[in-house]
Design a protein around this nucleic acid. Structure first.
Lengths: 195, 195
DNA sequence: TTTGTATATGAACAGGTGTTCATTTCAATC
DNA sequence: GATTGAAATGAACACCTGTTCATATACAAA
């Protein structure tokens, strides 16, 4: 046997990435073998290497694409004018974006140490860009007298950690609706920086 | 060669656990081999199996011992009487305990998916116990009118995530002293629940 | 219908995995 | 000094790892 009927690059490529993301998120990069990915996709091992030069690049591409999509989506978001509106926009955006991509979020937070140093630096820079968007909102709001911000960097990290923690307990169809979560966390964030 | 000069069980045993914790935290459970651990300790592979039945149990024991130590240490902490004092005690305790054990904390948060289902259930129950201590403080404080707590479970998870996030950026000898971090986070938590 | 190429295969390679166990060594006890 | 048992060894086992490549097929173009 060799090439199967109905096989196409524009199907296999995305399929490999989807399967890899799911398996990496569930079991961890090091615990997932290329043969497992291939089997789940329904191809032989060799086929994977038509779509990625190696396993490390497969992981890196997944993480980089997630971070790029995150930054692009925030760029495209309507942010409002006042610091209060911008902070609210950031929190709503963050929750919405992340709650729909649990596997990608898991990867981006948990597999950093499995990146080569060069790849890690790239992802870390993207993550820092995202954090800086929030930090800028806080700093400008502080200068405008809209927020009380004792240490912008610390509060940025505290708020991001708080929001990132949602993925630990959130389950689709659980006790709390997405709207309810948005409301609760918006209030928490508002309290954290209110003057 | 077989047994080395000056070798003792009460030295090798702890050494294996320390090395395993450091390597697991740094590279991840699946990426660390028993041969690496043995080499770092300075013994042959076989010696490891005098101290642990298998690799999975080695990981589980590290995580369980960490969680037990956490719960015991909180038990032994002076908590004060008022809800405000208890909340402050919890935050101070949490930061102090976790900042001194970065590897153990990393393990307990990152390697849950590498536990067998049975072992996972045990660790998860211990974690839940710890979370419940905070949740109880919040609920009692709410009932006493000392706190404004919209949803005790959500705020518990949000505060724990916020505190757990410290280990992401904290470095010994960094910009912020331990005392400064305590002060900043105490204020953040206070704001989150103030009536 | 023939040809060219994109797509896929899976055996092969060199090395690594967790775990076992017959064997050896050291240090303490008699 | 002889004996004993705890402590440690490292080769061996069966299997898995990421990656390569000669080979084969299916489809589109000529």
């Amino acid at each position: 046997m060799a090439r199967k009927a109905g096989s196409h690059a524009d199907i296999t490529g995305p399929a490999i990435r989807e399967v890899a993301q799911r398996l990496f998120a569930h079991s961890g990069y090091a615990a997932v073998s290329m043969r497992q990915i291939a089997a789940e996709v329904g191809v032989g091992v060799g086929a994977l290497y038509l779509y990625t030069p190696d396993k490390q690049t497969l992981l890196f591409d997944l993480m980089r694409d997630h971070m790029s999509a995150l930054l692009d989506a925030w760029e495209a978001t309507d942010k409002g004018e006042t610091p209060e509106a911008q902070l609210q926009a950031f929190v709503s955006f963050h929750i919405d974006f992340h709650i729909d991509r649990p596997d990608a979020v898991f990867l981006a937070y948990m597999e950093l140490r499995n990146l080569t140093p060069e790849n890690f630096a790239v992802i870390e820079a993207l993550r820092r860009q995202y954090e800086d968007h929030l930090q800028d909102i806080l700093t400008l709001g502080q200068e405008a007298g809209a927020f009380h911000v004792e240490d912008a960097r610390v509060i940025t990290m505290a708020l991001i950690a708080m929001l990132a923690g949602i993925h630990v307990w959130y389950r689709d169809g659980g006790r709390l609706s997405r709207d309810r979560i948005q409301t609760l966390y918006l209030e928490l964030v508002r309290r954290t920086v209110s003057p």
